[in-house]
Structure formats: structure tokens, C-alpha cells
């Protein structure tokens, strides 16, 4: 199996605080990789470094074996879709305009009516009715905003989709719905998915591969079937949610 994204010796610090301390990671093509770890372990920094929203201090990021810095920025970004933690919908745009935002940019810009049709189709795909299309983000609940964010992430059918804590702030039922949607969509599109989460129920639904970050390193990586028998004390503590264990509760 080929790797879609390869990280080699990735380092990132903010001031004296080391966030990523030599990360080496291969993200397989067409699979769903979930990155777990406590708050402040660098999960979001890792995703943002791959996307170029944060510049790593050192290391290499390869996309399909090619150094990211050698790729055209627009072509590179065209491969990615991202669902942000708070959905990050644009307040001044209607729901359909949010979903169709990428479709209305660049060389392959679609007409307004075509973009709207696709946006409504994607909204339906995430379980939202077409009447939602003309509302504004502030008129939707948190769960609905997450679905719209998901629709926006998949609107251009990207090869890679990033999900940043997709179930944070949602009730258990809505979390389950979002997890199922993510799994279905990833399988349906054949996309490479990378999700960061604290939510172990999400991990079990979404993941093919699990990676645990701790203290700027990869603490454990393996198949989702193996997480309960990993033999790693850090991972066991994280799964159980114990206050006592090798992961300090006061950070």
C-alpha cells in the first residue's frame, strides 16, 4: 500500500515549548488514520503543518512521495478538504455559499447555479434539507454547523480530508451521527482521511489506523483492532481515561 502523506523528522516549537519533536509518520492512501493524544500534544499543529497553515521548524512533508514545497500551492490545496473544530463557517455567507465556496474559486470556477446545485446535493448527503441552503450559519445549531462544515470539506471531492475534533461540543447522539457520516463519506469517496480527536468512541468508528501523540513524539501507532491490546501504558491510560498513570494529569 502506498502512502499519501509522509512526515519525516518534523519539529515545531513555540518559544521554548517543544510541540513536535521529530515526528516520523506515514499516512496510507485511502485509509482513515486517527491521531489521538491529550490536549496540547500537538495534534492540531501536526495537521496545520501538513496544510501549510503553520511552518514547521524542521523536517519534510511528502505528498505522494513529492516534497510539499515543490508542489504548486493551489494544486496542493486542491487535494485537501478540512472540517474545522468549530466548523469555521463564514458568517457573512449563506449555507450554500459556504459549501460551494471552493467551487466558485480558481480556474475551474463553476457558475452560481451549478455550484448551488452541488452544494444542495452535498447538504443532502450530510442529512440536511435543501431549505437550509439559504440560511446563515448563526441560524443553525452546533451539530448542523458541523454537518455544513463536513459538506464544505467534501464539496470538491478532495483526495484527502482532515477532521479536527469533529465531535467536540456535540451530544452523544449527534457525535454518533457525525462519526457514521465521516466513515460513510470516506469509504464512498475513497479518500484518505486524517482525524484528530479525544473521543474514543469516534476512534472506534472512524479509524483504520490509530496514532497516539505524547510529548511531541509518536507514542504508539497501529491498527484500530489492536488498541485494546497494545501493551502501551500511555495508550491504555488514555483509553480508560484514568487520572493515574504515566500521562501526567497536570500539564
Amino acid at each position: 500500500m502506498t502512502d499519501k502523506i509522509t512526515l519525516k523528522d518534523l519539529h515545531k516549537s513555540f518559544g521554548s515549548k517543544i510541540i513536535l519533536d521529530g515526528i516520523n509518520l506515514a499516512i496510507p492512501k485511502g485509509q482513515s488514520t486517527v491521531i489521538i493524544g491529550g490536549s496540547g500534544t500537538g495534534k492540531s499543529v501536526l495537521l496545520k503543518s501538513i496544510l501549510g497553515l503553520i511552518d514547521p521548524d524542521q523536517g519534510q512533508i511528502l505528498i505522494d512521495g513529492v516534497d510539499k514545497n515543490k508542489l504548486d500551492r493551489a494544486d496542493f490545496l486542491a487535494q485537501f478538504g478540512m472540517l474545522f473544530q468549530g466548523a469555521a463557517l463564514f458568517d457573512s455567507l449563506s449555507i450554500w455559499e459556504n459549501v460551494a465556496f471552493r467551487l466558485r474559486q480558481g480556474k475551474t470556477k463553476l457558475s452560481k447555479s451549478d455550484a448551488r446545485d452541488i452544494a444542495i446535493e452535498k447538504l443532502k448527503r450530510v442529512g440536511l434539507r435543501s431549505e437550509v441552503a439559504d440560511l446563515f450559519p448563526a441560524e443553525l445549531s452546533g451539530g448542523m454547523q458541523k454537518r455544513v462544515g463536513l459538506a464544505r470539506a467534501i464539496a470538491a471531492e478532495p483526495e484527502v480530508i482532515f477532521f479536527d475534533e469533529p465531535t467536540t461540543g456535540l451530544d452523544p447522539i449527534m457525535s454518533g451521527v457525525i462519526n457514521e457520516l465521516i466513515r460513510e463519506i470516506v469509504v464512498e469517496l475513497g479518500a484518505t482521511a486524517v482525524t484528530i480527536t479525544h473521543d474514543m468512541s469516534s476512534v472506534r468508528v472512524i479509524a483504520d489506523k490509530v496514532v497516539m501523540l505524547h510529548n511531541g513524539h509518536i507514542q504508539w501507532a497501529g491498527k484500530v483492532e489492536d488498541i485494546d491490546n497494545s501493551g502501551d501504558a500511555h495508550l491504555d491510560q488514555f483509553i480508560r481515561g484514568d487520572a493515574n498513570g504515566p500521562i501526567e494529569s497536570v500539564r
Binding site: 496544510l51 493551489a74 490545496l77 469555521a88 463557517l89 463564514f90 471552493r102 480558481g106
Partner: peptide, 11 residues
């Protein structure tokens, strides 16, 4: 609210 990051990821 990460809307500026979202703009960047949307090219």
C-alpha cells in the same frame, strides 16, 4: 474561530 485558516485551505 479559524475562518481565516478555512479560507487558506479553500485556496
Amino acid at each position: 474561530t479559524e475562518q481565516i485558516d478555512a479560507l487558506l485551505t479553500l485556496s
